[in-house]
Amino acid sequence: MKIAMATDHAAFSLKEEIKSYLLQSGYNVTDFGCYSEDSVDYPLFILKAARAVANGECERGIVMCGSGIGASIVANKIKGIRCALVYTPELCRLARQHNDANMIALAGRFTEKDTAKRIVDVFLLTQFEGGRHHRRVNQILEIEEGKI
């Protein structure tokens, strides 16, 4: 599975830890930046990762910033992205099962590295349940298309 990643400077060290963990686990990772702890404006990095997921270049995406909030807002501006800001593995599981989230946002300043690894495992291994949730995801897509 090919994973898109992007971050700001505040979550740089968490991104590097998760990227290493994913590579060791056999995943293919595309790192869209940033590449140091020097202060950056994160939207353009997050945008590249979200577009890579939306256009099929990557199957899933993991984006980060200090709080995770800005990263999730930017990613969700891209048509076809369902990015969930998650702080726990359980929230991540629900985002995958019920919302078919194709991206997650993590809070670099508030998420411990071991917790982030558990969240990432859940994100990559949990399947969308479909059923009643499929109808709801379709409604989200219709809203995105301007049909509702």
Rank of each mutant, 00 (worst) to 15 (best):
S13I: 08
G70P: 01
P43Y: 09
D41Q: 11
I3T: 11
D38H: 11
K19R: 13
F128Q: 06
A107C: 02
M5E: 01
I104M: 09
A54V: 08
Q97I: 04
K147E: 13
R132S: 11
V122Y: 03
T126D: 12
S72N: 01
A6Q: 04
C65M: 04
L44R: 15
A10L: 14
I62L: 04
M103N: 02
D41Y: 15
D41F: 14
T126H: 09
E90C: 06
A105T: 01
A116K: 02
E142G: 10
N76G: 05
I78K: 13
R135E: 14
A6K: 03
A71T: 00
F12Y: 15
L106E: 01
Q139E: 14
G56W: 08
G108R: 06
Q97T: 10
A54W: 07
L106Y: 02
M5Q: 03
R51F: 10
D114V: 14
A107T: 00
S39L: 13
V74P: 00
R109M: 08
G70K: 04
R109S: 03
E144K: 07
E145P: 04
L14K: 00
V86W: 06
E17L: 10
Y35S: 05
R51N: 13
A71S: 14
D100E: 07
F32L: 08
L14A: 01
C58F: 09
I140T: 07
I81R: 09
L141A: 15
Y35I: 05
I81N: 13
R135W: 10
D100G: 00
S39R: 12
Y21C: 02
A49L: 02
A49M: 03
A71G: 03
R51I: 15
A116P: 03
V63S: 04
G70Y: 00
I69V: 12
